[in-house]
Structure formats: structure tokens, C-alpha cells
Design a protein around this nucleic acid. Structure first.
Lengths: 338, 338
DNA sequence: TTGAAAGCGCTAACAT
DNA sequence: ATGTTAGCGCTTTCAA
């Protein structure tokens, strides 16, 4: 049996092609009995609408593109899962498109994706969310897109973010509450503005608690485990060693923990460590890592929702959403040694 | 400027539509000068072929589907990366399709994906590679697909795998060489046959070295960190504690390491631990984990290559590839205490 | 509430 | 080496 087309269904149901189309697309203005008749024909023939014919005629692909540049594996997976949840409910598919933010062809590549009609819209994750050039190009080309955790140009285009700066503030306050006065901080990769901004929360918390900001306790990391370990080497070699270290992400915090182990430093008795992101390593490490969980999947699901709204032309008034982080206290933090 | 079509390009270049099509698709039998003329017109108009028109006319989507059911995040990311490498070289896109292997609609869903023309072929990862029902349905429906690390029906359809059973054998031999006589083993999730089969390597190595297989040293895990920790509780509570534990994957091995830490067991002095997969946690943990690395991305790239060959009708004789694992010795294993 | 006709922009098959 | 002719299977007008 060759695969059935819309004409076959129409013939079998004794209606026009257009009526079948209406039933398939759940459009209104079809009598119940007609709908049933058509549905029966669809079932009998096991009819599946051709995606490409639909796309060509309707001039949309029913596919969304997910753009990312090398965030952590667990982040990408969570984003994909969340995005797919909403996509599937709406009959959309998800095309993944990892890319290099410094590639010369990046812009052409991304614009091509849309102009070729491969995708109807885009989701941007950090650090791409903050590539002004890319954002501007998308706006100029009138391409629908939503950004996750952007830090800039928020007035211009829809986005979804968390209150993670506030969470960094809270985490720092918690460490202070535990008696820590010398708290080391590891800043994130300069290109990942969403991550580096966590530093502001740390600074604000120190200020709020009348602690001086000691620049020798603040070091620049690059989001990787190895860079975290390098930073730990610096911090743990100081004559006056910090009693706690707060890293801007879990991978770097894991680097701190490993370096501390190698120096025979007992955690949390002699050193408290906190991270950010709640990646898998956070609970697979010893001691398990106190960290902050962002609702990544939910954010991505929300982003897709906003994007689909845009595609339907229902341009939302303030197309943005802010979601909440949660601090998870585990074994790696504790009261400062008296 | 409205977007250019193939007719616009043909008109500007002063050739027929078909010639433009030939240039775009890099078909042979076009004179160099003609090709240049057409290319110039394409550049001038910034012409991008419509994906949906191509798909409809050619009856192929130029998209491949990646099916998976909940393997680890790092595994999925590696597979995606590898698959995309080959896809992009060939002008294909990748659609991701996570699914539940016990979902009633799984088959209909997957078949629908192909029958709707959303994808031209599929890549299956474990444990889906070993779902006989799914594999059979794909074969019956004459859908092109390639499996990663299948353990069954290998005569029937193309696949890519590694010599991981051999690697498990080698790893066990290495532990024995280090003086270990009592080696605990944690079996993988029963549904993941590719993982459970590593047990065979362990058994073979014991036999080869004239060690008796002590069933109390073999416990059933479920691939997760938590299950690994549970298994470790069992093994480390034995009156005659193993001096080494080999887990069928890294997540479970991480569970062993954490449980050992909590019991004050020093590694590797008092306990050696080995894992499998070289996931990120393997080097983010203390002590860093001795494990086996499979070339996941390369396997996926190869799988796509085989799939594309199938799509081009060049049915390869024995469409299968076997790739090599590598043992990585890190800090978690050492000589047995005298 | 339903239908008829006209493409969407390409590729395939067959000329030339 | 290049061109001509037909569709691919839908959605979108517009009409009834």
C-alpha cells in the first residue's frame, strides 16, 4: 500500500481536500459528523500529512532551532528536554545547532538556517544570548527568537532568565551567617556574562554585611574544572587562606574541592566550598557540593512557549519571564572553625 | 527585497532553472563558465534554496533523527556532536528525539516521524538499539537506520560498536596484575545490554587468571550514581572486603568512591575503583577515576556515515564498524596493600 | 460549513 | 552540456 495523500482521504470520506485539511489542522467550522467521517477515513488509510508539502504551502517548517556554544553537557541536555516538552505539545520539532561564537561564518550560517526555511524561529542560550552582533542581525532580519539568560538589550527582544544574581547574594550571605569572614570568589568566563554577573551578588552581600572586599580573594576563572583548580591553587596558597570559596559554577567548584583534597584540607571543617548550577557532579563529588539550582528545563520550555506565541503573531506585550533559583545546602559548606 | 527563487537566479544568469539546480546541488555536467555565471547570480541575489520545496520535490527531508532513551547527558552530547560533524559535511540536519522505551506510542511515534517525511533515517542509541520490537518495526517499514552498540540481531542491520567487552577484560587483568585477588563487580542496568555485557569481560579475565568467580562480589546495579552507592554499601560491608571494585559505568563507580569516603576508606591504598565511559565526573572526582574511554563522537559520526550511504542506495556489504576503547589509568587504582 | 482552483519552489524524467 | 515539462502534497485565497 503506497502512502495515502490528502486526496485519497478526501475521496474516501466523500469530501473535499480542504475539508480534510481543516480536520487535520483542527480548524473550526467543520460539522461534527463531517469531522468524524474524515477522521475515520484518516484512520483507515493511516494517513500522515507530508511535512514538506505542508511546509512548502504554508511557508513554515514547524521546526525550531536551538543555538548553543559549548555550555556544559548537562545544561544543554536540560535545555533540550525543556524545549522539547513544549515543542511536542505544539507539533513542532527541534533542530539542534551547536556553533562557535567566534566563527566567521556564524552569522551567515544562522541566517541561512532560517532563510532556507529549515527553522521558523530560534532559541539562544548563553553565551550566544549576549552576542550583540548576532542579536542585532536577527532583529534586522526580522527573525523570531527568544534568549535564555541574556544580560543586555533586554528591552529589545523576548527572553527568559532567573534571579541568579540574587541567589549569589543569598549564598554569600549564608556563608557569612556560617561565620565566614574571608570568602574567596571565582569569577566565571568573561564571555559568559550571565555567569560573571554572579560576582555582583557576592559583592553586594559583602557590602550589606560590612565586610571589606578583598581583591586578593577574587580570582578570574574560565568556567572549566581545570580553571577552577588553578584558581584554587592561588587562593589556597595565600598566607591568610579563605575559610570558604564560592565558585561561579559547579565545574570550577569541583576543581576547588579536588585541589583541597590534594592539599589534605578537610572539608567543610577547614574549608567550605559552594558552586552554582547543580550539575551532576555536585552530588557525585565528596563532599557533595552546596550549590544553586536554576530551573533550566522550565526556562527552556517557557522560552519555546514565548517563541511559539511570537510565531502565531500574538506578540506578547512584555515577552519576558523571570524564574527562581533555589539554594541547595549539601556537605561542602559548614560553620567556620572556631 | 523579497527572497529570490530559483527562477530569479535562472533569469538573471540567463540559463534554465534546471541548470541552476545543477549548480546548487554540485551536479556534474555543467561547463565551468556556466557554473560561474550562475554562481554570480546566486551571490548577487543572495539566493537560498527553499528546504521545503527541495524536500517535497525530491521526497527526502535532508534531516536525520537521533533516537535515545535517557543515557547520560555526556553520552548524548557526544553522540550529538559526532553525528552533527558528519551531517553538516553532507548538508543534513539533525533532529533529536528523546523517548521512553516503555511508552505505548513509541513505535507509532517513531514510524510517524519517518512517514511524515520529517526525517530520512534514524540513529538508535542504547538501550533502544536492543529493543527487538523497534528494530523489527523499522526493518519491516523499510526505514533506513543505524544502531550504536547493539548486542543482538547484528546480522540484520548496520551498526557501530566498540570492543568494550575486551576492554572490561583488559581492565580486570590490569587490576589482577596490581595484585588484586578479590575484585568486586557492579553489573549495569539489565535493559542496557551493551553495559551488562561488560560483565563477560570480567568473568573471562578471572578465569584466564585462575581466580574463582565469587558471586558475593558481584552485585546488580542500575547505571545510576545512587545504585552504585547502594552496591558499594553491600560490597564494603562484606566480612572479606574486596580490595578493588570495578563498576560497569562511571556514575556507579562515583557512587562507590563517595561511599568509600564516607566510611573513611582511603583510595587507592585500601580500595581501588575502576569505572567505564570516561564521563566528566571521572576526572572531577577525588581520587580521579581509572576508566575506559569509548570514542563516542567518532562512533556517532561513523554511524551517520553508514546511514547516509544507505540513503544514497550504496548499500554497503557488511555495514558495520567496530572501534577501539582505551583504558585510562588515573588515581583511583593502585597496587594492593601488602 | 464546504469546495475549486491556484500555486508554494523545487527536482526528476526526459528531451535536445 | 543544457532545457522543458510535470508534478511533489499540501495551504491559501476566494467563491458558494
Amino acid at each position: 500500500m503506497a502512502k495515502a495523500t490528502i486526496d485519497d482521504v478526501a475521496a474516501l470520506a466523500g469530501v473535499s481536500m480542504k475539508t480534510v485539511s481543516r480536520v487535520v489542522n483542527k480548524e473550526p467550522n467543520v460539522r461534527g459528523s463531517t469531522r468524524d467521517k474524515v477522521q475515520a477515513a484518516i484512520d483507515e488509510l493511516d494517513y500522515r500529512p507530508s511535512q514538506s508539502a505542508r511546509s512548502l504551502a504554508a511557508n513554515r517548517s514547524y521546526v525550531l532551532g536551538l543555538l548553543y556554544d559549548n555550555p556544559s553537557a548537562s545544561y544543554v541536555i536540560d535545555v533540550q528536554d525543556g524545549a522539547l516538552t513544549t515543542c511536542r505539545r505544539s507539533g513542532y520539532d527541534l533542530l539542534i545547532h551547536p556553533c562557535k561564537r567566534d566563527a566567521a561564518e556564524l552569522l551567515a550560517e544562522v541566517l541561512g538556517l532560517v532563510r532556507q526555511g529549515r527553522v521558523d524561529g530560534l532559541i539562544l542560550t548563553p553565551p550566544l544570548s549576549d552576542m550583540a552582533e548576532l542579536v542585532q542581525a536577527l532583529v534586522n532580519a526580522d527573525i523570531p527568537f527568544v534568549r535564555l539568560s541574556p544580560t543586555e538589550h533586554k528591552e529589545a527582544c523576548p527572553y527568559v532568565q532567573t534571579n541568579d544574581q540574587e541567589a549569589a547574594y543569598d549564598m554569600t550571605c549564608r556563608l557569612i551567617e556560617l561565620g565566614h569572614q574571608h570568602i574567596g570568589f571565582i569569577i566565571g568566563h568573561p564571555d559568559h556574562r550571565a555567569v560573571t554577573q554572579r560576582y555582583a551578588g557576592y559583592v553586594a552581600a559583602l557590602k550589606e554585611n560590612d565586610l571589606t572586599l578583598d581583591k586578593s580573594l577574587v580570582v578570574q576563572g574560565y568556567n572549566s574544572f581545570d580553571s577552577g583548580r588553578d584558581c584554587a591553587r592561588q587562593l589556597l596558597s595565600l598566607s591568610e587562606r579563605p575559610s570558604a570559596i564560592f565558585a561561579s559554577n559547579d565545574d570550577m567548584a569541583a576543581g576547588v574541592i579536588i585541589e583541597a583534597h590534594h592539599r589534605g584540607i578537610v572539608m567543610p571543617a577547614e574549608l567550605s566550598v559552594a558552586g552554582f548550577d547543580d550539575t551532576p557532579v555536585a552530588h557525585q563529588i565528596y563532599p557533595s557540593l552546596t550549590t544553586v539550582r536554576q530551573p533550566i528545563a522550565e526556562m527552556a520550555a517557557k522560552a519555546v512557549e514565548l517563541l511559539l506565541k511570537q510565531l502565531k503573531g500574538k506578540s506578547v506585550q512584555m515577552p519576558a519571564a523571570i524564574m527562581s533559583c533555589r539554594i541547595l545546602e549539601r556537605e561542602s559548606t559548614g560553620k567556620v572553625k572556631p
